[in-house]
């Protein structure tokens, strides 16, 4: 996307120095709000910090305890399950909606409406759906009841709770994801569709052969961003199930939160957070590589 002018005059050295000055606000913010806490978190992860004591160094004890902690592995397992459900449904739906918007209508009202659920604060979304999905008082169970089904324990049945939470967040984020993908589709030159149409390709074929391959860099970015976001599932769980039933929705972020601010095992929680950061880093790198995100076929 950067313009590549063939001839540019030799840059004066001062430019770079000036550039650093422009970067200072961002770097300072990054240092204070990300860098410093990250380093501090790394330190806490090798201590027995409980907030009320003076942290003392315990080596890799937190990490080895984590490896033996069944709850930690369960948290990773249920998080992976959530990510799979959420990313799967959200991306497919968003792709479908974006393609429809791209090829059928370009109504601004429709686009704005799609964003509405994303604009509602997560806690409100959680409360809203907790009432709608409630086993005894929920509207959805009332509807199911009128056709003779249920009641269904959407948020209280161990096998349904995580899929329900994934569905809630899919509802909330699909519009936003669709809009990102739609913006990516707008970059695909129109003439490709025209020539594909002349060659006799139908809409489905065009989607598979033109849209999808050319959307790849944007899709990769969307996947990476939503994968990281999805791993950070917290607020919906904190509002609706609080990790119940029996840890079925105790996702990794909620696990870390409970260890840190309910049991005050700050050192242990920091170690879990570092593990999560490592996992996310590896996943992102793998994804970027597999999807060749930095290169476009639109050359």
């Amino acid at each position: 996307m950067t313009s590549s002018t063939p001839h540019h005059p030799a840059r004066r050295r001062d430019d770079r120095r000036a550039a650093w000055w422009f970067l200072v606000p961002v770097l300072a913010g990054f240092g204070v709000f990300y860098g410093y806490p990250a380093v501090r978190g790394l330190w806490y992860s090798v201590t027995d910090y409980t907030m009320l004591n003076t942290p003392s160094f315990v080596g890799a004890e937190n990490y080895s305890a984590l490896m033996r902690d069944g709850d930690f592995w369960n948290a990773l397992k249920v998080t992976a399950w959530y990510v799979l459900l959420n990313i799967g449904s959200q991306t497919l739906l968003a792709l479908a909606i974006a393609a429809l918007m791209h090829r059928l209508t370009r109504s601004v009202v429709l686009r704005a409406t799609l964003l509405l659920p994303w604009l509602v604060p997560n806690v409100t979304v959680g409360l809203l759906w907790m009432w709608l999905l409630d086993t005894n008082l929920g509207f959805l169970n009332h509807l199911l009841g009128t056709v003779g089904i249920g009641p269904v324990g959407f948020l209280s049945d161990a096998s349904l709770a995580m899929p329900s939470i994934a569905a809630i967040n899919t509802w909330s984020y699909t519009g936003y994801t669709a809009l990102l993908l739609y913006a990516g589709m707008l970059q695909i030159p129109q003439y490709l569709y025209e020539s594909a149409a002349i060659d006799g390709a139908g809409e489905w074929r065009m989607f598979r052969r033109v849209t999808l391959p050319l959307l790849r860099p944007v899709l990769a970015l969307v996947l990476v961003v939503s994968l990281i976001g999805s791993f950070q599932i917290f607020d919906t769980i904190a509002v609706t199930t609080k990790g119940d039933p029996v840890g079925a929705t105790r996702a990794i972020y909620f696990f870390i939160y409970e260890e840190a601010f309910r049991f005050f095992h700050l050192g242990y929680a920091a170690a879990a957070a570092i593990c999560l950061a490592l996992i996310l880093g590896v996943l992102t790198a793998v994804q970027m590589r597999l999807l060749r995100a930095s290169r476009s076929d639109l050359a």
């Binding site: 409630d134 324990g153 209280s156 199930t241």
Partner: peptide
Amino acid sequence: PALDLKSTLARDA
């Protein structure tokens, strides 16, 4: 109510 069919809302509700 069975635990997997219990309400997420408080008992007073």
